[in-house]
């Protein structure tokens, strides 16, 4: 009887080892056939984690910037990343990642770049590098559609929410005299808490809040908090070559009308001149 049990154990261990080996082998398949497009205007002088692929970390969903289901993610950031990668002669791989640890993961080399409606801040610049700005954003106060709240001033002494690790959370915690600021792992949880009445308002990037208002009608944006934030793509500190290449591609996109096309697709408006002109910074 003991012999039978031991041989079962051996078989189980062998199966486990085989499974692990197969899984490891599986990853290599992505390598074959990643052709270098001749659309690349300069030779590749940067390294990516996987040759020929731009691995991008993003907190999905964050509509309208990145949302949808694998492998058909869509959104403003997605379209931007695809446009940039094409000009760099790279394929794109999106890695879904929680926002609160996204910079750390980037610094640890899990992805080449972060495209996640990420605001450029001095604090974050200590850990990662940013591309030139590619979007102007503000924060907003979003409340349930039937709420009486009209502005930030009405939030004094109330329970409000934001997404963990965002500038919205920072604003809520530092600038608003709320009774409690609840942070949520995913922005959708904040919307849900709003619906359930657990928070009276959420501080969320304006474009995302507006999108939710338009799509669902369950919430409304009652005030835009002007913070003059700008989004940038983030890179690990050592990836200067990649960042420079991305900046060049970004500049192209802004000049040749691609940016305008993408912007109009998602926001049904003209992009602000300021963004089109901002460049070669960082």
């Amino acid at each position: 009887m003991r012999e039978k049990r031991r041989s079962l154990l051996v078989v189980a261990l062998l199966a486990l080892v085989c499974a692990l080996a197969l899984a490891a082998c599986g990853d290599d398949d992505d390598d074959d056939g990643a052709t270098q497009t001749n659309g690349a205007t300069q030779a590749q002088q940067f390294d990516t984690i996987e040759a020929g692929v731009l691995t991008v970390g993003s907190d999905i969903p964050y509509e309208p910037f990145e949302f949808g289901r694998e492998p058909d993610y869509e959104g403003f950031d997605i379209d931007m990343v695809n446009a940039i990668a094409e000009r760099l002669g790279l394929e794109v791989k999106i890695v879904k990642t929680p926002f609160d640890t996204i910079f750390r993961n980037l610094a640890q080399g899990r992805f080449d770049m972060v495209a996640s409606a990420t605001t450029i801040t001095e604090e974050r610049k200590r850990t990662v590098d940013f591309s030139d700005p590619y979007f102007n954003a503000d924060q907003s106060v979003v409340v349930p559609a039937d709420s009486d709240i009209q502005s930030v001033a009405d939030l004094e002494g109330e329970v409000i929410g934001a997404q963990l690790g965002t500038t919205g959370a920072e604003y809520a915690q530092n600038e608003i005299d709320a009774a409690d600021v609840r942070t949520y792992d995913v922005v959708d949880d904040a919307f849900q808490a709003l619906q359930a009445g657990q928070i009276v308002a959420a501080i969320i990037d304006f474009p995302v809040a507006k999108r939710a208002e338009v799509e669902t009608g369950d919430v409304k944006v009652v005030e835009t908090i002007q913070t003059d934030e700008q989004y940038g793509f983030a890179f690990a500190k050592e990836s200067t070559a990649l960042r420079d290449a991305v900046n060049r591609a970004l500049a192209e996109i802004k000049q040749d009308g691609t940016y305008e096309e993408i912007f109009r697709k998602w926001f049904e408006a003209d992009p602000p001149a300021e963004i089109l002109q901002s460049g070669s910074g960082g």
Binding site: D100, L164, Y184, Q198
Partner: peptide, 16 residues
Amino acid sequence: VIGVVEVVKVGREIQA
């Protein structure tokens, strides 16, 4: 995950 700030969440907020 529903918003209660217990010790692990505190750690994560400080981490963020």
